[in-house]
């Protein structure tokens, strides 16, 4: 596949959240605001791209028996780097994302791509795959985050949208809203895929 196709697949056809159904934990937790959603998405994209790169570069040197622990150490290293950099330069975002920053290490997307792709492909393609999947992840987070923030809080990126009279539908920023919102989003994706296949 060409580099562009590798990149684009992660965005739509094989969107990790909406089609492959991976990495769902942070999706539900950090999508109460569009800012947090993008922050998490880009952090995960960085980890995914870098770990894909390193795993790919080392793929011939890692014995099969220890490939999972090796991948885990590599991924955990980049997660820790992101954690420290965010704490140093984006303190408020670090506070909002909280627990879910270290949890990037168990995001099934990242381990999944290392195993399924980076360990079997060239460095360039692996980076591109990571970038595509990561941005697809960010896209899904952003869509859900925007919906939940606008409907549940009346704001977008922290800016109040509606006047005094608007009463936000609180349930959207609460756990039930997260589950139901994501459920509808995935159903929506299924619908679009079906139409594309038939049309």
């Amino acid at each position: 596949m060409s580099a562009w196709k590798e990149f684009a697949k992660g965005f739509w056809n094989q969107n990790p959240v909406l089609r492959l159904l991976l990495g769902l934990c942070p999706v539900l937790a950090v999508t109460t605001s569009a800012t947090d959603a993008i922050g998490m998405g880009l952090s995960a994209t960085f980890v995914l791209t870098m770990s894909n790169l390193v795993v790919s570069l080392m793929r011939k040197g890692i014995p099969d028996r220890v490939r999972l622990p090796a991948f885990i150490v590599i991924i955990a290293t980049f997660v820790t780097i992101v954690d420290m950099v965010l704490k140093a330069y984006m303190f408020d975002l670090h506070k909002s994302l909280g627990l879910f920053i270290p949890l990037i290490v168990v995001n099934c997307i990242i381990l999944g791509r290392a195993e399924a792709f980076a360990s079997k492909n060239t460095a360039l393609m692996s980076m591109v795959d990571g970038l595509g999947m990561g941005l697809g992840f960010t896209l899904a987070l952003f869509i859900l985050g925007t919906i939940r923030e606008i409907l549940g809080n009346g704001t977008f990126f922290g800016m109040t949208l509606f006047g005094e009279g608007f009463d936000p539908v609180l349930v959207f920023v609460l756990p039930p809203g997260a589950f139901i919102g994501l459920g509808f989003l995935i159903a929506g994706m299924n619908y679009l895929e079906r139409r594309k296949a038939n049309g």
Partner: peptide, 19 residues
């Protein structure tokens, strides 16, 4: 396998200490 893991872990720890 053990040597590989040790090398990777040591490099990781070193990189993190630098950051």
């Amino acid at each position: 396998p053990i040597i590989v893991i040790v090398i990777i872990s040591a490099s990781a720890a070193a990189l993190l200490a630098v950051v």
